[in-house]
Amino acid sequence: MIEEKTTKEAFKPRVLVTKIGLDGHDRGSRIIAAWLRDAGMEVIYTAPWQEISTVVKLVQEEDVDVIGLSSLATDHLLVPKLMTALSEVGYQHVKVVVGGIVPDADELMLLDAGVSKVFHTGSAKNDVIEAIGALANKARNSSSSITFN
């Protein structure tokens, strides 16, 4: 499922699982984090209520491939602002997925804003793992990485 890169160890996707905005329900984000861990990924898990600027800083520091945002209230409405903030620092290669309760019209709005995928409640474990694994690979390969030479 996850391709091995030309490193000494298998490529381990790094995924930030977080929540922006006002809501704090975390049952969904905890389950997703556990699923991804069990699929061999490294999950950076944060407290809820993150500011967008902090998420950007975290993405840089932790060198993540995918951001998974859980939204059970209405915080997904802020995601387009996160997308803008990521491109402002040249991190548009990082893939963003949103999971939770997202009305249909808003899903289109999020995809338009550059979100790679929206997972609704009831999404199957394997679908989530496969999609995020594939996105992580894509992100790692399209990263305009700094060359150390």
């Binding site: 209405t74 409405l77 802020l78």
Partner: peptide, 21 residues
């Protein structure tokens, strides 16, 4: 609204979230 749960008045919250729940 969730902004109230967080103890924030309306003038301190991104308006796109206000009154959404």
């Amino acid at each position: 609204c969730n902004s109230v749960y967080r103890g924030l008045d309306v003038d301190l919250v991104d308006p796109v979230l206000l009154g959404t729940c």
